[in-house]
């Protein structure tokens, strides 16, 4: 077990920095498309909300219009 005291410290290989740097750049490049994905997701969500708001408003508008306004009564008679 005393042999463990003889273990020498070594210097890390120079190539290690290049490998780390390469991976860091790759990781950063991978992050960019994620921003795009988030932007697209946000745009889709906004479109969906706008669509819902529009649909609700449209439904409210048709509720206020009576059938008589759309179909003039004198042109139709169920008893004829």
């Amino acid at each position: 077990m005393e042999l463990l005291d003889n273990i020498k410290k070594v210097t890390a290989p120079d190539a290690l920095w290049h490998k780390v740097n390469e991976r860091v750049h790759k990781q950063q490049a991978d992050i960019v498309p994620m921003h795009n994905v988030r932007a697209i997701a946000a745009a889709v969500a906004l479109l969906f909300i706008a669509n819902v708001v529009f649909a609700v408003q449209w439904t409210n508008t048709t509720d206020e219009v009576s059938l008589e306004e759309i179909i003039p009564e004198e042109n139709y008679s169920l008893y004829e």
């Binding site: 410290k9 070594v10 210097t11 890390a12 290989p13 290690l16």
Partner: peptide, 8 residues
Amino acid sequence: LHTDLVYN
């Protein structure tokens, strides 16, 4: 500063 520490 820490590369040799980590590697060893």
